[in-house]
Simulated scan of single mutants.
Amino acid sequence: MDMIAFDHEQFLREFWQKKPLLIRNPWKAWTNPLEPDELAGLACEDEVESRLVKQAADNWELEHGPLAENRFGRLGKAPWTLLVQAVDHHVPSVATLLEPFRFIPNWRVDDVMVSYAVDGGGVGPHFDQYDVFLVQGLGKRLWQVGAPCGPDAELLRHDDLRLLANFEATEEWLLEPGDILYVPPRVPHNGVAVGDDCMTYSIGFRAPSRSELIEDLAEAVTADLEDDDRYADPNLQAQENPGEISREAIDQLLGMVAERMLDRDAFARWFAGYSTTPKRPEISWQPEEPFEVDEVRRMLAEPTELLRNPASRFAFVRGKPGSVLLSVDGRCFDCAGETVVFAEQLAGQDQVTVGPNVAASEPTVDLITTLLNQGSVAFDQEAEGA
């Protein structure tokens, strides 16, 4: 889906992680990519994460999916909102909403959450720890934003919802289909449906915390360490006070940890895998019948389109001259020579044209075969049929 005009550089300079921005319908022709009934159907599926939020006076109720098919007919008159996570992984038309926002690195993209609300429905005043673009798909929603929240922001007592106890709006806008509201991290916002059939597409971005990074990195580093790689002090000197941990010991111990934790190449490889790990790794996208290398090479005899799985994550890190590390769904591949161009294209585009030039490269064919068999890419069946 294309936009008429959007100044990416100005946005990054003046608004990104600084202040909210309302963008009135910038699309060449806005079309709501998903019908409400389709969203409700996704909420009934086991492999899809969904939530139902109901509000009655000051009481908020949260129900986790999957939801029964007849659940929506028993909701009563109280305002309610249906939230479905990672809809872009299951509906290609929703995945196209991400294209205009590719000026932000792919590894920062989380997913597209879709909400449906009846008149008065919402999830209450809250703030997120990440950036979000709120695209109004259908109906109208009134959005209010407030001043950024500090670390001591008071929350309501609720086991599942992180709602602000005190919310004061500083600005508000009524969004109609095609309008977009950008909200930076920790900026409180509250959206309320105005009329029924209100659908909003929330394009969220990942911002890993320091604790998450350290915890996962430490686990990855220690997995490769030998148990006999231990502290040693063959030049130990007698101390005046045996209760002291000497400066020399501290320096050596810190060095043992830092040597592993601060290895830049190892960190880059770890983070490439960490940042591309699928959101729902328990879901298998593998083909029913595995591909063979010779079969793939035959399929590349004529130009065809190779499509990325919308649920897959791709990224690459530049290595030594003429090489890149490609990471796909948490798995890393060292690429060199002619495979580098293909890897860079695949990481940056939703589809790549491949053909005889690729078939002549054995490493590239091997890579494509592996990615096909793990369900990360697929050949365009429509193009093949044509």
Rank of each mutant, 00 (worst) to 15 (best):
R206T: 13
R74D: 12
D263M: 04
L307S: 08
V221Q: 06
D37P: 00
R230T: 15
A68V: 02
D88N: 15
Q239D: 10
S93N: 14
V183M: 08
S376Q: 04
E99M: 09
D233E: 14
F133S: 09
A223F: 06
F11M: 03
A383P: 00
L307I: 15
P148L: 06
T353N: 12
G178L: 06
V132S: 00
Q286D: 09
D329P: 02
A56F: 08
P148S: 08
Q286S: 09
G146A: 10
I203P: 02
R102E: 09
L253S: 11
R157H: 13
N70G: 02
E338D: 15
D350M: 07
L163A: 12
V112A: 07
P36F: 04
P281R: 07
A268K: 12
R141H: 05
S202N: 04
A238H: 13
T277G: 02
V91H: 08
E338S: 15
V112C: 05
L346V: 11
A5M: 12
S361T: 05
E248T: 10
G124H: 14
V135T: 13
M199T: 00
R51Y: 00
I250M: 14
F314S: 03
L175E: 01
E61Q: 15
D152V: 04
V109K: 13
P278W: 14
E176N: 03
G273Y: 08
D159K: 15
F6S: 02
S246N: 06
P26Y: 08
A343N: 01
E344G: 03
N241G: 04
F314Q: 06
F267P: 03
S361W: 10
R210L: 12
E47S: 09
A40D: 01
G195I: 10
V354F: 06
F267A: 07
V48N: 07
S50L: 12
R157D: 14
R141N: 07
F314L: 01
N32S: 11
A383H: 14
L174N: 11
I214V: 15
E176R: 07
M3T: 12
R230P: 08
P92K: 14
T370C: 12
D329F: 05
T96L: 04
L42D: 06
V53M: 04
E14A: 14
G204M: 05
R74I: 02
A378V: 02
I250K: 08
K28V: 09
L326M: 01
H126E: 06
Y116T: 04
